[in-house]
Amino acid sequence: MTWTCEGIRAVLFDLDGTLIDSAPDLGAAVDAMRVRRGLASLPLDHYRPFTGSGARGMLRAAFDVASEDDGYDLLKEEFFTEYASCLTQRTLPFDEVVDMLDLLVAVGMPWGVVTNKAERFTAPIARSMALFKTAAVVISGDTTPHAKPHPQPLLEAARRMGLPPHACAYVGDDERDIRAGKAAGMRTVAACYGYLGAGADVATWGADAMVSSPMQVLKLLELP
């Protein structure tokens, strides 16, 4: 699909790596697990490229374990507990995000969040950050039976906003975001400033557009 802003009446965003930089808290949580085991602390730069893969990525970065390995599930639950205790300590919006959302609200364009992050983590973050007070909808990874790249979470967001999916654009920093958006019939935007991961080739994702900063979303929408 060739990018056009015609007909777009709402914008949906992924959360981690698109609206907020949660890497410092995710990294701190898994690093605390390392230190408890007598292992050396690792810098945030080591963890950041793995952030987009959630617990699986963090545990791989810290312990070189995969989801099919013995003991992975116990490590994952320990990580979730550790992260829940610190998830609002260091997490901040990316530069330009607050200004971008303020401008969307100012022109009357609804915006919302569709994330694979579980509600037990999404809800405290949303409560702690003022920018989410203007969100029309927040869909977490366990709001519907399926998570991205399945389109159901995006379709549910559109339903709750009372809009057809084709009237929405979806912005995300992972290939699964683009796959989910396309499957839902939405215009898709790749956030190239996010947690792309090592070796990611955004050009192959098939997004309708790419942005290198949040404010470029407004330019795509032809907003001031």
Rank of each mutant, 00 (worst) to 15 (best):
R90N: 12
R90V: 03
R90T: 00
R90P: 02
T91E: 00
T91V: 10
T91H: 08
T91I: 11
T91D: 05
T91M: 12
L92K: 10
P93S: 01
P93Y: 04
P93F: 03
P93K: 01
P93L: 03
F94V: 06
F94N: 07
D95K: 11
E96I: 06
E96R: 11
E96P: 04
V97Y: 06
V98R: 15
D99A: 15
D99H: 09
D99Y: 03
D99P: 03
D99Q: 14
M100Q: 02
M100E: 00
M100T: 15
M100W: 01
L101P: 05
D102R: 15
D102M: 11
L103T: 14
L103R: 15
L103Q: 15
L103E: 14
L103N: 08
L104R: 10
V105D: 15
V105F: 04
V105Y: 02
V105E: 15
A106D: 12
A106T: 09
V107M: 03
V107W: 04
V107A: 07
G108M: 04
G108K: 00
M109E: 06
M109N: 08
M109Y: 05
M109D: 10
M109L: 15
P110W: 05
P110Q: 00
P110I: 09
P110G: 12
W111I: 02
W111M: 08
W111F: 13
G112V: 08
V113M: 06
V114S: 10
V114W: 00
T115Y: 09
T115W: 04
N116W: 03
N116G: 12
K117E: 03
K117G: 05
K117H: 01
E119I: 07
E119T: 11
E119Q: 12
R120G: 07
F121H: 15
F121V: 07
F121W: 10
T122F: 03
A123L: 12
A123P: 02
A123Y: 05
P124D: 10
I125P: 06
A126N: 05
A126G: 06
A126P: 01
A126R: 06
A126M: 08
R127Q: 14
R127H: 12
R127F: 03
S128D: 14
S128K: 11
S128P: 04
S128R: 13
M129F: 08
M129R: 10
M129P: 05
A130R: 11
A130Y: 02
A130C: 04
L131I: 15
F132N: 08
F132S: 05
F132W: 00
F132R: 00
F132G: 02
K133T: 13
T134S: 14
T134K: 14
T134V: 05
T134N: 13
A135H: 04
A135P: 08
A136G: 15
A136R: 13
V137M: 08
V137R: 09
V137Q: 01
V138G: 04
V138Q: 12
I139R: 09
I139L: 09
I139M: 11
S140E: 04
S140A: 15
S140H: 03
S140G: 10
S140Y: 03
D142T: 01
T143C: 08
P145K: 05
H146G: 00
H146A: 13
A147W: 07
A147E: 07
K148R: 11
K148G: 09
K148L: 06
P149A: 08
P149V: 00
P149D: 03
P149I: 05
P149F: 09
H150A: 13
H150M: 02
P151T: 09
P151W: 07
P151M: 09
Q152W: 01
Q152G: 07
Q152L: 14
Q152A: 13
Q152S: 12
